[in-house]
Amino acid sequence: MSRMVIFWLFLFFLGFVLINYPFISIFDKKIFVFGYPLLYIYFFVGWLVSIIVVYIFSRKIDDE
């Protein structure tokens, strides 16, 4: 397996942990930040970050 594959797999498992219980119970609370529920912020911001991460690393594939 190439290093690239291992790395993508790592991101996959990391993501898997970040979007599942028990981890998300940290954010699964009725708290409002800037007027928005914490859990919503966590998911939407996290989602966007993951898209950016894919964007950055997919350019590495392009280079190869």
Partner: peptide, 20 residues
Amino acid sequence: GIEFLAIYIGPTLIIFTWWF
């Protein structure tokens, strides 16, 4: 509530494996 997101977050996650 936010449960509907699960079926969009799943695909976003599996995408990390798409290149291989």
